[in-house]
Amino acid sequence: MGYIRKPCSAAAVSSAVLVVRSPIAVSSASSAEFLAQGVRTSLRPVRRSDCAEVLALRRESAEMHRPWLVAQEATEEAFDAYVERFDEPEQEGFVICRRESGAIVGSVAIYDIVRGPFQSGVIVYAAYASTAGRGYLTEGVGLAVQHGFAVLGLCRLEARTGRRTPGHRGY
């Protein structure tokens, strides 16, 4: 587990490489509204219409995701239940998209959002096999962290990863 804390000064936030914007329409294959944009990726809320694309990505990435996501069914019903979770105020779900095409390259969610004096949450993410190792998730998760701090008003995010995740440098 790792913890990310919001920079204390406005100067630290404004000097960040990532730019957080209000929702804007971006012309892409899906004409989606994006919450934030990086150099190569954009962040937007996950929606039911993403079902076919996400399920196809999950299926092609099944071996890479074992054993972490094996328990989750890759069905339309399971995806609908997943998206429905984000109607709750303590959960936010996003997809990371390539800017030039709008294609989904990863997913990220902020769970267990606690308001009041803690203003914290847990961030989880998943890459997909066809685009893994290209830096899309690094940028996209950074956009989600910026969104968590700047838009959701969180002060602390806890990142949870699997201990044996390839590339994980934790314990």
Rank of each mutant, 00 (worst) to 15 (best):
R5H: 14
P7H: 03
A10T: 10
A11D: 13
A12N: 11
V13A: 09
V17G: 13
V20I: 12
R21N: 15
S22I: 11
S22V: 14
I24Y: 09
A29N: 11
A29D: 10
A29P: 07
S30T: 12
S31H: 14
E33R: 14
F34K: 09
Q37K: 14
R40C: 10
P45E: 03
P45D: 04
P45Q: 11
V46F: 00
S49Y: 04
D50Y: 01
A56C: 11
R59H: 13
R59P: 05
E63W: 06
H65K: 06
P67W: 01
W68Y: 12
L69W: 14
A71D: 09
E73Q: 14
T75G: 03
A78L: 06
D80L: 13
A81F: 05
A81K: 15
Y82W: 14
V83Y: 00
F86V: 02
F86T: 01
P89V: 10
E90C: 14
Q91S: 15
E92L: 14
V95K: 00
C97T: 02
S101L: 01
A103W: 09
V108W: 02
R115E: 08
G116V: 02
F118H: 11
Q119T: 08
Q119I: 07
Q119M: 14
Q119V: 10
S120L: 07
G121N: 08
G121R: 10
I123A: 02
A127G: 09
Y128N: 01
A132M: 04
A132S: 04
G133S: 01
E139D: 04
E139I: 03
G142Y: 01
L143D: 02
H147Y: 15
H147K: 08
L152F: 08
